[in-house]
Amino acid sequence: MQLKVKFFASLSEQIGFTDTTVDVDKPATVSDVWNLATGGQTMPVNTLCAINMAYARLDDSISNGDEIAFFPPVTGGNA
């Protein structure tokens, strides 16, 4: 199955790109997608993730066509 993967903010700077596509040939989790997309880079603590724009957990299963996003803690609004 093919998945879109996006990285935001400091994570995209660390990884070196903002988006990519990965092919997965067996049942996989969000965490597996991180490893495939980043070539096994260490995931920073506090990394958040989403499947199809809804917050998800690293051990959630993914499906064909999903959009997976990884990002650091959010800082919207103001003080």
Binding site: F8, A9, S10, N46, A50, P72, V74, G76, G77
Partner: peptide
């Protein structure tokens, strides 16, 4: 929880607020 991220420009350069 809204997915926004702030990067500030300070006297000593840029920094992510979440860092």
């Amino acid at each position: 929880r809204a997915p926004f991220w702030k990067k500030e420009l300070t006297d000593s350069g840029e920094r992510w607020v979440h860092d």
